[in-house]
Design a protein around this nucleic acid. Sequence first.
RNA 1: GCGCCCGUAGCUCAGCUGGAUAGAGCACGAGACUUCUAAUCUUGAGGCCACAGGUUCGAAUCCUGUCGGGCGCGCCA
Length: 581
Amino acid sequence: MSETQTLHAAFAAKIDAVLDALEAEAVLPAGVARGNVAVEPPRDPAHGDLSTNAAMVLAKQAKTNPHALAEKLVEKLSTDPLIEAAEIAGPGFINLRLDDSNWLREIEAIAALQGDYGRSTRGAGRTVNVEYVSANPTGPMHMGHCRGAVVGDALAALLEYAGHPVVREYYVNDAGAQVQTLARSAHLRYREALGEDIGEIPEGFYPGDYLKPIGKALADEFGDSYVGAPESEWLTIFREKSVAAMMDMIRADLAMLGIHHDVFSSEAVLQAAGKPEAAEAWLRSHDLVYDGLLEAPKGKVLEDWEAVELPLFRSTRFGDDQDRPIRKSDGNWTYFGADLAYHMQKAEQADELIDIWGADHAGTVKRIKAAVAALSEGQGKPIPFDVKLVQMVQLLRNGEPVKMSKRSGNFITIADMVEEVGKDVVRFTMLTRKPEAQMDFDFAKVVEASKDNPVFYVQYAHARISSTLRKAAAEGITPSGDHLDLLGVDEMSLVKQAAQFPRQVEAAAQAREPHRIAFYLYDLAAAFHAYWNLGNDDAEKRIILTDNVDLTASRLFLAVQVAQVIRNGLALLGVEAVEEL
RNA sequence: GCGCCCGUAGCUCAGCUGGAUAGAGCACGAGACUUCUAAUCUUGAGGCCACAGGUUCGAAUCCUGUCGGGCGCGCCA
């Protein structure tokens, strides 16, 4: 067994073994379906450390009632020396209270594994490709990209920690009309850099000042040779140069958030390699692409609608409202046509795919899922594919919406945000809400130093531990695990909270919900703050007792492990733990 | 009109894929600093889990419908 088997998993295995035994005794039918058997900590700690619904779920199959079956289970579980008590409760729950030795060993496990405590092999080496951000390379990263970027990055880290090789990927849309507009806008700035008065930036061009340095660089490189030249001579080169510059800028913005991708896939390269043609050919050979008339969009009245014959993908076969064109009437690929080929390419290199999209792209989920489902059939293996939609963030300042106008490029960039409130605040705040719910981000509130602000609350717990260790060191006491048996019931409840971490990681990874880690850390911090304050009422419960070195060393040892778990959790969120506030 | 997401305490939100008496924070009431950081803790009050049906031992959670809010809906990206 791997060294990271969790306490929780170990007891789940014990219960499984008992069910095996009951099968052997024909109390349960052979091969009984156990899919719904759950082993988890009860909500109410008074009910014990672990609880299972096995008797309730299996009673019908065993042709008996839950209580009778529970008695058989309890009988066997009670003989385990690591189980202090097994009791039947409520409609047939079995509550287990674990022997304290389990928890003491868990403290030692944290100490031994350190940064790897909570890491698991559950992912079984299955490679997951996580595509996130993928903002168009036409300007700096702004707020609209931020949440998806943070959620995608935390999810990638979480999956990695749970045993998946992870590819962090960014799809660069460098082949469409928008990057042509970028090139033309850069050409304006190029002429400006050469001294021409270009006046107001016309409609249909990107107005932002961020293109000025690009214009300057182009002027430095090419002189005035493209000033009066026809577009055909400079469009491609200007496009490539400005996209490259935009991507440098985007990478720098992402780096401010601590985000780094492994792979940047270019749409232009994908097309040059003929990937969309290959996808089309395969789909046509399976009757999944046909030439047909594109229907007018439903529910909208369009006077100028003209049905045109186009190559259409049969996404209706997979639940979409209508079949979707993969090429435009000028023969070029639609965004969808190229994206389809792109997903095919990703699927060749990974076992599972996850896309993180903004909620404004929700309308295209069905067609891309349809496409991957179709490709799945072609590959002869299912390609698990998940699109996570990240809802909008509303920016506020003291409760007032922050105004943004796209015109004149006056929007809040990620760089602005990070400079104002800091990377850790941005990341943690974005992860304290489930991604599919809308959220407000109030610049004033997120920097508040109070328990209303989870970032500080968790950081404060870590800082308090650091400060305690400094104080103890000054008293000449260092943490030691030699006398952990001196620890009492208050310490046990803190350990129990810390020991939930591996299970939380697994559950969060399985559900693809990194925000669960943030909420868990808040709870762990609360448990520590509560433990700390016991010393306010009872001086004997203070961590540092200069007249009891062994107990103090043991409490410090525990505190060190709690800090370790906080660090491990924060690391998954990409937030740094601090030594002091 | 259609699709997707959301609706839980006065406010902001959790709720571990169907479990036991639905939980936190803010705000409100009452308490705890000669201290290892009171940036914290303890405690009280506060609920038709939007509404109506259904599924089953059991529903905030799953299904159907209604209402309310958000996002989206051309060969754009």
